[in-house]
């Protein structure tokens, strides 16, 4: 998907889907988070013009919706890579070696927390406890949860080594 696609106006499918989400709640505004998550799923992040269009459908000003969008850490207002790595930095994962995993990602992919790789494939973000502490350290890559992560498993999950491109 190109950058242009991600900033293009909402299409008919997207408009219909947002209308459907609004119908689930007594107020349109209540669908704000669902609508932002939906467009983000299709466009990877919520660009300014996308935010304006979604706000209009929800009956909000762009500022009102941005107030919501910027509060929640799983809504991305800046471009992110193809796969977002959410590496837990809460207590049990910290004790069991999450910092070593972060260093490994920096060494192999070249990104620190908050950064996107030059090839646009990965973004690394910290995340609060994922509720997987009996398998710490834990992380999510996209929608998939991984536990008992070590550097070898990390390479495998991210396909850093081997010829499987993804």
């Amino acid at each position: 998907m190109s950058i242009v696609d991600r900033q293009s106006p909402l299409d008919g499918t997207e408009r219909a889907a947002i209308a459907d989400l609004i119908a689930h709640y007594p107020t349109a505004r209540a669908a704000a988070i669902d609508a932002l998550k939906y467009v983000q799923k299709r466009r990877r992040y919520v660009a300014d013009n996308t935010l304006q269009e979604v706000a209009h459908l929800l009956g909000l000003s762009a500022a009102e919706l941005d107030e919501v969008a910027t509060f929640y850490n799983l809504i991305y207002r800046k471009p992110v890579g193809e796969r977002v790595i959410l590496l837990c930095d809460s207590i049990t994962c910290w004790m069991t070696g999450r910092d070593a995993l972060a260093r490994h990602i920096e060494q192999t992919i070249g990104i620190k927390s908050g950064e996107t790789s030059a090839d646009d494939r990965f973004t690394l973000l910290p995340i609060v406890c994922l509720g997987h502490c009996d398998h710490a350290p834990a992380m999510m890559v996209g929608d998939v949860l991984h536990g008992d992560v070590d550097t070898a498993k990390l390479d495998e999950i991210l396909h850093i080594k081997g010829d499987d491109a993804r």
Partner: peptide, 27 residues
């Protein structure tokens, strides 16, 4: 019954912040 998936932030677990979040506001 409707399932509402959140978008992050620990404070959503505080019950009144959770209600604000469900209403489509900052938690």
């Amino acid at each position: 019954i409707q399932v509402h998936g959140g978008a992050g932030r620990y404070i959503c677990g505080e019950e009144t912040a959770l209600l604000n979040s469900l209403e489509g506001k900052r938690a």
